[in-house]
Design a protein around this nucleic acid. Structure first.
Lengths: 204, 204
DNA sequence: AACAATCATATTGTCGACAATTATACAATT
DNA sequence: AATTGTATAATTGTCGACAATATGATTGTT
């Protein structure tokens, strides 16, 4: 239910978001080549637009690009890499919370609440793809508010970390953890918010 | 002086590297719009190839992209952001050194030595652009060897951190610090190498 | 049968042209 | 004078076609 965004998403962004979601949900197997032509036909656009999207996803680390050979879904991170990613993510998000804190508005609260409700429904229905997407969107919200430049760095790390998040042990816990974050923010309790975020970000 | 790479660089990569170098050396002022047409004419290629490069640089955080409005050079990071970037970089590079360590070869030593010589000359001549480029290439070497996926994350952070590195207080110190890193690696002293890298990566 | 060279096919890379959008300059209205 | 509306120019977004490259099959030679 995209309700608030005024800026119309570009074609590239739409394709990016769609593919990223599928890949993160594990719907495309690792090392399987992704063909431009197929996607162009599927989305009803030219190969050029697809290329743009694939290039962006390569830069994000979701896809691996080999010149003249196209792209493939990148392999999931090793355990050690996952731990590193989690650490980096925590540091970026904590920093972002601090930066965004001073300009946080009631509207931001509303937007987070809306995402939280979506997450809640997704957890009840055990819709893994929706959970992953909404989870991403929530965290992205405060990072994006803090800095657009940081956002792209953060996205690369987080997406890599969440690739093949497939088996989520406890859907309810995911929902509760995010509720805790949203509430801490709503109460303007920065240190509680930071702590809640830190708890939520961990390598499996 | 690109001397060693066997794989032919794609047009996009060439344009990316050229622009990234110029931006990092501060040759294009902040918030100045970058026009596709001009670049296409300058590099003697079609606008499409330029677009690919601009898109990639946007994803790296060097350029800021606004739909239908093109790109502009992104503003330099705040002091607080610089400190965060430095921290993230240290963690990624330390991790990379550990990972790359087991498969490190004499050829790698040779490649690093070659870069170190280039850096040395650049420092003597006080060629800031060459210094920045070579500095980047050296660090990139071990990160890239550890993981292609990590490399793209690392590049985004590092490039943002080095934007407008312009005033480098002490050229000789830069050269010496990197010499220490190379030597520690050559001696296969991991902990010394890690320490040398940590010392070298700092926010100004 | 094993290997090398050659050809055919599929896929990516590049290009120029046109459509859609945005920014700018200028006139019209209050 | 300030604001709104309109036409013009500049810029980005999208497309289809062709060139360059890689992949896979076929043939020819030993």
């Amino acid at each position: 239910m995209p309700s608030t965004r005024l800026p119309i998403l570009s074609m590239r962004q739409q394709i990016c978001d769609a593919l990223r979601g599928e890949i993160m949900a594990g719907e495309i197997s690792f090392n399987q080549p992704v063909r431009e032509q197929n996607l162009a036909k599927r989305f009803g656009v030219s190969r050029n637009s697809v290329r743009d999207a694939l290039l962006q996803l390569s830069q994000e680390g979701v896809l691996i690009y080999s010149p003249n050979c196209g792209v493939r879904v990148s392999s999931p991170p090793t355990q050690k890499e996952s731990k590193l990613y989690a650490k980096l993510r925590r540091e970026i998000e904590i920093h972002s919370l601090e930066i965004a804190w001073s300009s946080w508005t009631k509207e931001d609260d509303g937007n987070l609440n809306r995402l939280q409700r979506i997450l809640s429904v997704a957890c009840e229905q055990q819709d893994l793809k929706a959970i992953t997407e909404t989870d991403l969107a929530m965290h992205r919200y405060w990072v994006s508010k803090a800095s657009k430049e940081l956002e792209s760095v953060w996205l690369g790390i987080t997406v890599r970390m969440l690739i093949a998040y497939s088996q989520l042990d406890n859907y309810m816990q995911c929902c509760l953890e995010h509720a805790a974050i949203v509430e801490a923010i709503a109460c303007r309790d920065l240190s509680a918010a930071k702590k809640a975020v830190e708890l939520n970000i961990r390598s499996k």
